[in-house]
Computed example of a mutant assay.
Amino acid sequence: MKTIKVVVTLILLAAFSHAYAAAGLIAVKSPHSAKATMDRFEVIIKDKGLNVFARIDHAAGAAKIGKALRPTEVLIFGNPQGGTPFMECAQSVGIDLPLKALVWEDASSQVWLGYNDPEYLAERHGVPECSVAENLHKALAGFAAAAVAP
């Protein structure tokens, strides 16, 4: 049964994925509102025992200076159990940690959940063989798929 869940998760992730121009950014479509998508993602992160360090509402920030911005939020999260081994591969990875997820609504009202691919980060920091990156990649893909599931 667990294998079926993994396969379904990967299929959903592939179905909702979109190739974005930003190098290393994985983005998946969400059928939910931006707020609901981020709320779901945050609950998943907390349920998995990760720390949430901050949730930043860029649209609220824009409103403070009289500007309008479609819904755009960032969640900063992580755990020393994942981050420390990643930095043991290359301490410079610390510039990209803690992990971040971005939820935004585009001009056509489509909501997206995006995050930096840890495998891309490993390449960026010259440690493509770092097995931690692959494990984080799989975990984030699962979290994102669950957050955008109908």
Rank of each mutant, 00 (worst) to 15 (best):
P85H: 05
A107E: 15
I56C: 01
V127A: 11
V103T: 12
P80K: 03
R40F: 08
N79P: 08
S92N: 10
R55G: 05
L136P: 01
K35L: 10
L75W: 02
A145H: 09
Q81F: 10
I44V: 07
K100M: 08
G83Y: 04
P150D: 08
M87C: 07
A34M: 02
I4T: 14
Q81S: 11
H32S: 03
I45K: 07
V74F: 14
T9V: 02
V93I: 15
R124Y: 06
A21H: 08
V52C: 05
Y20P: 01
S131R: 06
E73H: 05
A145M: 01
A101H: 02
P150E: 14
A15N: 06
A22L: 14
F53T: 02
A59Y: 03
D47T: 06
A146S: 14
K29Q: 10
A107K: 09
A133T: 11
I56G: 00
A23K: 08
H32R: 03
A122T: 11
V52E: 02
A139Q: 10
A54E: 08
L113N: 08
Y115F: 15
A141D: 06
P98A: 10
D57E: 12
C130A: 11
F143Q: 10
T3W: 12
F77Y: 15
L69I: 08
A22Y: 09
H18E: 11
P85W: 03
V127Q: 13
L50K: 05
L102N: 07
V103R: 11
A27S: 15
V8L: 15
K48D: 14
W112P: 04
S109G: 00
E119M: 14
G126R: 06
I26D: 12
I65R: 13
A60Y: 06
M1P: 06
K46R: 14
A63R: 15
Q91P: 03
K5Q: 09
K64Y: 02
P150I: 12
L97G: 08
E134S: 15
L140P: 09
H32P: 04
K5P: 02
V7I: 15
V132K: 10
M87F: 12
A101I: 02
G78C: 07
M38A: 02
K5F: 07
Q81P: 00
K2G: 15
L50Q: 05
W104A: 06
D117L: 06
A14L: 12
R124N: 04
A27H: 13
L10R: 13
H58L: 11
F16P: 00
A147C: 10
K46G: 05
I11P: 01
A36K: 15
E129D: 15
T72I: 01
G24T: 03
A15M: 13
E42K: 07
G126M: 07
V43I: 09
K138W: 03
F86D: 05
L97R: 02
A133Q: 13
Q81L: 15
G126P: 11
T37G: 01
